[in-house]
Amino acid sequence: MKAKIIVGVVVVAVGIVLGAVNFIESNVEYMDFAAAQRANKKAQVKGTWVKDQATSFDPEKVQFSFFMKDDADRTVKVVLQGAKPNNFEIAESVVAKGRFSGEEFHATEVLTKCPSKYEGDAEAVKKSL
């Protein structure tokens, strides 16, 4: 009986520690470009796509790059490992997840935040009359 309780307690303790450590580690922090560059670790940066600067796609390396302005108004070139994200053109804001490499922000993922559906729907309903 005693052995079972010890086994149980150890298993639960290990489980909780494992879960907590991983949870904290895998929750990438939000910061602006300046902080992300200082911290030199994986970060999430929220901002907007700077439309009047060129975007490009490199089919050899499969990299999509664009310029992004963060909330502190700093513009940085973001290089995404992958193709252009969905809804990129119509996104109100974007969140890039990655880390700095020199002056470029190398993103592994770019999430797009789209305008509220209701506004889009009101437009769409007028079109389909």
Binding site: N22, E25, S26, E29
Partner: peptide
């Protein structure tokens, strides 16, 4: 906890 919502990365699930 932090005032800003963020999702865990896929590695969390694999590791745990």
């Amino acid at each position: 906890l932090k005032g800003k919502a963020s999702a865990v990365e896929m590695m969390y699930y694999v590791k745990t």
